[in-house]
Amino acid sequence: MSRLAAAGLLLALFSSAAASAAPAPDATEIVRRADQHLRGSTGYAEYTMKLVRPGWSRELTLKSWSKGTREALILIESPARDRGMSFLKLGNEVWSWIPSVERVVKIPPSMMTQAWMGSDFTNDDLVKESSLVNDYTQTLVGDTAIAGRACWKIRMIPRPEAAVVWGKVLIWITKQDDLEMRLEYFDEDGALVNVLEMTEIRMMGGRLLPTVLTMSPRDEPGNHTVLTYRDARFDQPIADSFFSEQNMKRVR
């Protein structure tokens, strides 16, 4: 799930895709490279988040800024009722600015596992730093093609000391360009819980990116959340003071 924090909401960036011609099939190295490709100096994105539920759906438009793995800011632009709400992530903590009540609220630990803005992502997904490299033991288990792209399939088992809720994560990474294409999250009993799929790969902000991310919980067949990127920019300087309580109230 931690990957979502980077790949999904906070928009990670993909490193300069200097053709990774070396096909050394070391699983840890593949994951590390894909992960590193998501870590730029800074990232900025505009996207929509659509919650799909049986009988209704809801669409939000958002902007996000990130710097490294520890700092991020998300601003909600629509719907009108939620316009101006912002979320600030500093390290492992998340604050929320709610303009209608003019209050900054720290999201309490007990609410971290709850849905973020009613979506299939949790508050925890916002906070967790990318830990696919450090918190898991990676094993290459095969190669398949997804949407015509040759991919490595890698099994990741959490390290005993890691604070991870999953029992197993499967990840598919393209052999070229180091793009994550699909993640499957399993619980400790080995049952599939969530599937994250990346589609619509195209150039955005000067990089090759999957521009649509779909999160589908398996126990609720009618539910899914779709993130669609409209714009992205990378490596533009952002001051540290940008990620502050003062700024989350006035950022536009």
Partner: peptide, 16 residues
């Protein structure tokens, strides 16, 4: 008091 929560159809519930 400020109240915060989740509203109907995933709307944000915020009020004074």
């Amino acid at each position: 008091l400020v109240a915060l929560g989740a509203g109907y159809h995933a709307a944000t519930a915020a009020g004074r």
